[in-house]
Design a protein around this nucleic acid. Sequence first.
DNA 1: CGGACCCACACTGGATCCAAAATCCGATCC
DNA 2: GGATCGGATTTTGGATCCAGTGTGGGTCCG
Lengths: 223, 223
Amino acid sequence: MTNGAVQRRRPPTAQQYVLAELRSAITGGRLRPGEPIRQDALAARLEVSRVPLREALKILEGEGLVEHKVHRGYFVTELSLDDLREVYRIRELLEAEAVRRAAARTDADLLTVLERAQSEVERAGGSGDVTAMADANRRFHFALFDASGMPRLVRLIGTLWDSTDAYRSLYYAEPPNRERVVDEHHAVLDALRAGDTDEALRLLDRHRAHAVTRLERVLGKSR
Amino acid sequence: MTNGAVQRRRPPTAQQYVLAELRSAITGGRLRPGEPIRQDALAARLEVSRVPLREALKILEGEGLVEHKVHRGYFVTELSLDDLREVYRIRELLEAEAVRRAAARTDADLLTVLERAQSEVERAGGSGDVTAMADANRRFHFALFDASGMPRLVRLIGTLWDSTDAYRSLYYAEPPNRERVVDEHHAVLDALRAGDTDEALRLLDRHRAHAVTRLERVLGKSR
DNA sequence: CGGACCCACACTGGATCCAAAATCCGATCC
DNA sequence: GGATCGGATTTTGGATCCAGTGTGGGTCCG
């Protein structure tokens, strides 16, 4: 294994493979901000053609991870600390709306779904499976968002989550953070069961705030 | 001219041409919700290859105008009244944030830029040039948003505007609406000059609310 | 010696071509 | 007669190939 291309198991489609690869390359700093993305070279490195690469880049452009200039190509946009804070601020605004609406129509079914997701979070967290935990965590939060009945809002929030995906795994890599997440979810569930929407919102804001604080520290060190 | 392909003057790049064409086809109802998009046929109709078409579709997917299923293709998502209302609600949340921050740092330069954009709006509005007015209107609002210093937030708002672009021209098509917009902009400028942020926010909310009300009426009739 | 012009190269945008997945439809078996 | 399996067809996903634009360097002229 001398080439730089990382091998993953079972990339379902070349496009998705390239997309995931690019995300981690950008957020991981292997592709540096401002740097132009040479399609030919990168495609060769990832052993795909330029077509799926370009489609993946279009997605990333929509998420704001890269910028595109006609006839000049794609460039990596900086995900600075400010950007990260911005994303979290926007999430705060949008998720508050989603949760407020979801809380208004919370029922037994929703609570069941949330509890199931939560036990999955705990299982994965306990066994130290970081990606499984990130997955289950996402299911937990989005089950709640989905209940808002605002599909476009949920989509938007999803894009925001995507754009900071790589950072999230950084967060889950630390065991104390994993424990904390489990506790916080429980508190949110309690608040929802009690019908205390404001409390749930406050808890979720804290939940995000802690993540951003930790990430600021980690990123501040590495850059 | 017997073929169905619409001819526009000077499409800068095939991709952008296809993108604009698709937007109006979807929002104009020529491509119906739920309908699958046959790439080959559509590409032939627009007289381009499937490559730029697919890239345009990826953009629209990011905006939520179409959905994509692996190996099954793209499908038109419905932009129902509910969706429209959702988009405007999200805009309300995000634009409020942008304007709040922008107002906090309003200065003479910003006011000058806004006034210039506004006189452009009036000129275009007076001469009945709908697209020029829509352009100038956008410049007006985004000059304000830009002043927030939150580039990602501004980008997001931009995407939301894009996703309802075709509807906006519907709104500007009616002369009384054009007059109203001019007046409302003046009021917003006054509030900003006076440093009354809350008033500006209220005015902008009304601005949007009126647009959505009118659009509801128009769409309600045509569908 | 400095600057404008021009040409070759590099890279993107687009078109065409190929492979693989999904669907549709008929034949076969129970 | 109904359900299921299998192959032909359609359609997408991907690879290769071509054209047009932007860029950088070299040259020629002032």
